[in-house]
């Protein structure tokens, strides 16, 4: 019945349709250099770069971003002014570098505040359920019915313009998505067997919430937050494009595009470079978000399972 063993190295796969034209080493390379690693690595590198630029902005700026010199206006990109100058003779590169501070800090503040509020509300309403859940979720439903931009415009009208008011305005809508996610997670967890087991060994409600719910929810929230930063940057930019964000003369990417749009025909660099900056940073943080999402799923982390 059982004969002499055959060496596995002589192994033969099931004949499968071959992918034409792809050399074998490419395949191996592709497998060892896994997709999610690339996303995460690139995301981290670019994000670190952007954040470092924002931190060391005063050192990196070749010119003072707010200094006006009308003799130097509308210089196209050149060796002296890599990204050119604007209608007031200010260096666009310096303004973009300075603007990264404002744009990033607004975006981060929005994400942090809305994540904190949303997680807490969602966790409580998911854990207690019943009337508490009902009330919170109806509030969320109402807020979700407004488009973010319109609601932010309305809030800015009440509070006035400015960076802080912009943060408040966007937060008012953004926390709802965090609340939704953390409520969903909390409801799933509530029925998990290990929560029941945790109750059985004597944890009280507060301990269950903070020891079991929070760590499990936080990973989901982190994923959402890192995916969200990109779109928050876009929101901030579009609101400041509409004139609701940081006020002149402090440079803001959205406001710079807004200024540049009038000179689009003969000085396109004024709008193009801030636009690229917005696109690049949104893309970077989206990539980071994707990478983080793959990384934070505990079941994808380790341990080879057979069968």
């Amino acid at each position: 019945m059982m004969e002499k063993p055959v060496s596995v190295t002589e192994g033969l796969r099931y004949p499968r349709p071959k992918l034409a034209g792809i050399p074998k080493y490419m395949n191996v390379l592709w497998r060892s250099f896994n997709k999610k690693n690339i996303m995460l690595t690139l995301g981290i590198i670019f994000a670190t770069f952007i954040i470092l630029v924002a931190i060391f902005a005063p050192v990196l700026e070749p010119y003072d971003p707010t200094k006006m010199d009308l003799a130097l206006k509308f210089i196209p990109p050149s060796a002296a002014h890599i990204f050119g100058t604007d209608n007031m003779g200010r260096d666009v590169l310096s303004r973009i570098i300075e603007g990264s501070r404002i744009s990033l800090s607004t975006a981060f503040m929005v994400v942090i505040f809305s994540a904190c509020i949303g997680t807490l509300v969602g966790m409580i309403s998911g854990f207690w359920g019943g009337k508490v859940d009902m009330i919170f979720m109806r509030i969320v439903d109402v807020l979700l019915a407004f488009p973010t931009i319109i609601f932010a415009l309305a809030i800015s009208t009440v509070l006035g313009t400015g960076a802080i008011n912009l943060v408040i305005a966007i937060c008012c809508i953004q926390w709802t998505s965090y609340a939704r996610v953390s409520r969903g997670e909390a409801i799933l967890l509530k029925n998990a067997e290990y929560i029941e087991a945790a109750k059985a060994i004597g944890n009280n409600s507060l301990q269950i919430m903070f020891k079991y719910f929070l760590p499990n929810i936080v990973s989901k929230i982190l994923i959402l937050a890192s995916l969200n930063i990109g779109s928050i940057i876009l929101y901030c930019a579009s609101l400041s494009f509409l004139g609701l964000g940081a006020q002149p003369p402090s440079p803001d990417w959205g406001a710079m595009i807004s200024d540049g749009k009038e000179y689009m025909r003969y000085a396109p660099w004024m709008a193009i470079f801030p636009g690229l900056a917005i696109a690049a940073s949104a893309l970077t943080f989206n990539m980071l978000g994707d990478g983080v999402r793959d990384l934070l799923d505990p079941r994808m982390r380790d341990s080879v399972k057979t069968e």
Partner: peptide, 18 residues
């Protein structure tokens, strides 16, 4: 709870996966 304890059906699911 110190006196009454329980052993559950799905052993792997009764532990916090984190």
């Amino acid at each position: 709870r110190r006196e009454i304890q329980m052993i559950f059906q799905h052993p792997q699911m009764t532990f916090n996966p984190r």
